[in-house]
Design a protein around this nucleic acid. Structure first.
Length: 588
RNA sequence: GCGCCCGUAGCUCAGCUGGAUAGAGCACCAGAUUCCUAAUCUGGGGGUCACAGGUUCAAGUCCUGUCGGGCGCGCCA
């Protein structure tokens, strides 16, 4: 149930009617017609901008068109008033019964309230692929991965809630030089496990203790088989085992954060299957590959720059600044080349809508990837890249210096262990993805209004608390979901109560707009605002006892108010559900 | 030098893809709080939306330029 979308649909029907009887010209473009809550609540329940959007094409003044339309809107069931304001807004007030029905719908739909079918009507939604994390399989996840991981995961949930058929994907970069280094590092640990003295880990290799277990495992499995073999002989096997072990680590870290991917795609597998060659042949056949010499970047020419003919993709034909190399000087593919194959592969697997979640340091890569995706799919796939800005870990307002040597934590797991997965997940979404974020280890566990996690959780817990209280104070009262659903909502008359219902009525459109914009952080702000309204009403009951939720000598009123509380609880739980945050029933 | 992102109240940030008088929280000031959970609530002051142009009925939002901050810039991923 989405009151705003329903109303928009009915207004579009009215417009069609006006066009059909010749009052308005036919074929007016209505995509920009919006039905929204007005910025100022005193303007009413809904604001319609149709008259201003359509005035020019209709050949009318906005306010005249508004008057015409308002006359029709007033005849719609559920509309109490339709007034023209400002440059041509039509402000609607709905019958109170409409809002009360909305509460009824919330209770009936439960946490499904707010789910949408915008991803596709009548059956399965459009398929969307969200690729996130995709950290190199060379060690455990570190703090720098936290934000993109949470962002991608919640964006995926959000799109699913909006009716899309979502695939959560992880791209394993197991084909580059990094994993060879991993293999060499693991090989040392293997020899160590066999009793060799390996001394200090040489510069350039991964020194982490987490590789000791890998070395031991290989020693246990293969014995001394590789010990005296040449690198060319052992490297592929050790690499494969090490990567598998690292992915186990990564998966465990992800699980600690409550993240689970549907698909893990291996870059090496793509390469071995010849997909890169196929992709480049495809581009070649479209005349998009040539051999040329790139200009050195101005202002920052690398020391060892020398002009060299390269195999280039014509990225600049698709919006990129320059053409991009596909081959390294040793003849192997660049990372970009296999990434083209990968995105093409995603498209061929049925994903015309693709979203990649990257860290801020990859911002310069966005254009070329979009250019390549556009080129190789013939413009049929859309790639949106969400860049997550860096997170500064703070403590008591001071930045935390993170280094292994200093003993301060650097891994994602440490962060989760320190404050809990729910806190990490929520806080990572309290800022827009492309803005920086300060994560204060002390502030996020404080119990105050400054701390959005607490504030929202407290609202949810408070709902449960009220229910527990009601059971004690009025033992004979039936507060089962069925009973609350059948409550006499007409007893809800206070403006704060209705305001709360209106706020809840905004939830479905918040979900839709957040899904459309690929901006899950909007849900955090919504939840915070709803919690705020709820706390305000609760406090009102302290000053005015007649506004309390529990009125012992009036079971009917109490039931209605508990239904309201239940509604708030439901909507917050729905929001936290999309966030993958467990809604607490009690704070301690 | 070029590209991308950012610039909104003293501070941290929203602003629903162009709408009405630009909003929260913190901090500050003034109040409420023997209470369904104490960890709150009500009100107030505070703005050249970095700056300058442009587009239109309407610009924080779109375009151009300038300034300031971050990230990136062939054979790393």
């Amino acid at each position: 149930m989405n009151l705003f979308r329903d109303m928009r649909g009915r207004i579009l029907e009215l417009l069609q009617g006006l066009a059909a009887d010749g009052t308005l010209p036919a074929g007016l473009e209505t995509v920009r017609v919006a039905v929204e809550p007005p910025r100022d609540a005193s303007h009413g329940d809904m604001a319609v901008n149709a008259a201003m959007i359509l005035a020019k094409d209709a050949g009318m003044k906005p306010r005249d068109l508004a008057a015409l339309l308002a006359d029709r809107i007033r005849t719609l069931p559920g509309v109490a008033t339709a007034e023209i304001a400002g440059p041509g807004f039509i402000n609607l007030r709905l019958d109170r019964a409409v809002w009360l029905d909305c509460l009824s719908a919330i209770l009936a739909e439960g946490e499904g309230f707010g789910r949408s079918d915008m991803g596709g009507r009548g059956g399965r939604g459009a398929r969307v692929n969200v690729e996130y994390v995709s950290a190199n399989p060379t060690g455990p996840l570190h703090i720098g991965h936290a934000r993109g991981t949470v962002f991608g995961d919640v964006l995926a949930s959000l799109l699913a809630a909006a009716g899309y058929d979502v695939c959560r994907e992880y791209y394993i970069n197991d084909a580059g030089a990094q994993v060879d280094i991993l293999a060499r590092s693991a090989f040392l640990r293997y020899r160590e496990a066999l009793g060799d003295d390996i001394g200090a880990i040489p510069e350039g290799l991964y020194p982490g203790d987490y590789l000791k277990a890998v070395g031991s495992a290989i020693a246990a499995e293969d014995g001394a088989r590789w010990r005296d073999a040449g690198e060319a002989e052992w490297l592929p096997a050790i690499r494969s085992k090490a990567v598998a072990a690292m992915m186990d680590l990564v998966r465990a870290d992800l699980a600690a954060l409550g993240v689970r991917h549907d698909v893990f795609t291996s870059e090496r597998a793509l390469v071995d299957a010849g997909k890169v060659g196929e992709a480049l042949a495809e581009l070649e056949s479209r005349g998009l590959i040539y051999t040329g010499i790139l200009e050195p970047p101005k202002g920052k020419a690398p020391d060892d720059w020398e002009p060299r003919p390269q195999t280039l993709f014509r990225a600049s034909q698709f919006g990129d600044d320059v053409d991009r190399p596909l081959k390294k000087s040793d003849g192997s593919w660049t990372y970009f080349a296999s990434d083209i194959a990968y995105h093409w592969d995603k498209y061929k697997r049925g994903f015309a809508i693709q979203i990649d979640v990257w860290g801020a340091d990859h911002g310069g890569y966005v254009k070329r990837m979009q250019a390549a995706t556009k080129a190789i799919t013939g413009g049929k796939a859309a790639l949106d890249v969400k860049i997550c800005q860096i997170v500064r870990i703070m403590d008591q307002g001071e930045p935390v210096k993170m280094s292994k040597r200093a003993g301060t934590f650097v891994t994602l797991r440490d962060l989760v262990d320190e404050v809990g997965k729910d806190v990490v997940r929520f806080i990572m979404l309290t800022r827009k993805n492309d803005a920086g974020l300060d994560f204060d280890l002390t502030a996020v566990t404080e119990q105050s209004r400054d701390n959005p996690v607490f504030y929202v959780q407290y609202a949810h817990a408070r709902c449960h608390s009220v229910m527990r209280m009601a059971r004690t104070a009025m033992p004979g009262l039936d507060i089962s979901p069925e009973s609350l659903r059948a409550a006499n909502f007409a007893r809800l008359t206070d403006e704060s109560e209705l305001g709360l219902i209106r706020a809840m009525g905004n939830w479905p459109r918040t979900v839709e707009s957040a899904a459309e914009a690929h901006e899950p952080h909007r849900l955090a702000f919504y939840m915070y605002d709803l919690a705020s309204e709820f706390h305000a009403l609760w406090t009102k009951g302290k000053e005015d006892a007649t506004l309390r939720f529990i009125i012992e000598d009036d079971p009917e009123l109490t039931t209605a108010r508990l239904a309201l509380v239940r509604g708030v609880q439901t909507v917050i739980a729905a929001g936290l559900g999309i966030f993958g945050v467990h809604p607490v029933e009690e704070l301690r």
